[in-house]
Nucleic acid binder design. Structure first.
Length: 139
DNA sequence: GCCAACGTTGGC
DNA sequence: GCCAACGTTGGC
């Protein structure tokens, strides 16, 4: 299984709202960047993604899971096709992992979050995944 | 097809 | 509120 990181401004779409959608999940709309789109298209059902709050909080607050693989973004013009993936909230981080903490951890210095701060859907390596989970108090 | 100008994102 | 990074647009 693959690992990812998805970013959202909590003003627009927060972890709380995601959690409120329950097991059915919700479409991750509004991606308008080709690199991010390619990443969405690579996601498989059951893949997991860190849910990161940008701007406000600047921390990984939970883990989301892909419940439906990519399909056309209903919020895009049909002539200008983009894709969405449905995510459900899988589990919260016992202890949110802040951007500062990620920067302070040498093992995470190559994370896309630090290198491509503007990319809203990013891949995460298995090692990075494990490290962040540990920092977040997950087993 | 190049590149300058411009807009957007996101950390500070 | 500022500014760096970076994607997009448009003139040539």
């Amino acid at each position: 299984m693959a690992y990812w990181l998805i970013k959202s401004e909590p003003d627009v779409w927060s972890w709380d709202k995601q959690t409120a959608k329950g097991a059915k999940g919700e479409a991750w709309t509004g991606v308008r960047n080709h690199t991010a789109k390619l990443n969405l298209m690579k996601m498989k059902k059951g893949d997991r993604a860190f849910f990161y709050h940008s701007n406000i909080g600047k921390e990984i607050v939970g883990i989301a899971e892909v419940v439906r693989e990519h399909y056309p973004d209903p919020t895009a013009e049909p002539r200008d096709p983009w894709v969405v993936v449905d995510f459900k909230a899988a589990e919260p981080m016992p202890k949110p992992v802040t951007l500062d903490a990620i920067k302070a951890e040498p093992k995470l210095k190559d994370m896309a979050l630090l290198k491509q701060s503007r990319l809203s859907v990013q891949p995460v390596t298995a090692d990075e995944w494990k490290t962040v989970c540990k920092m977040g108090g997950k087993k």
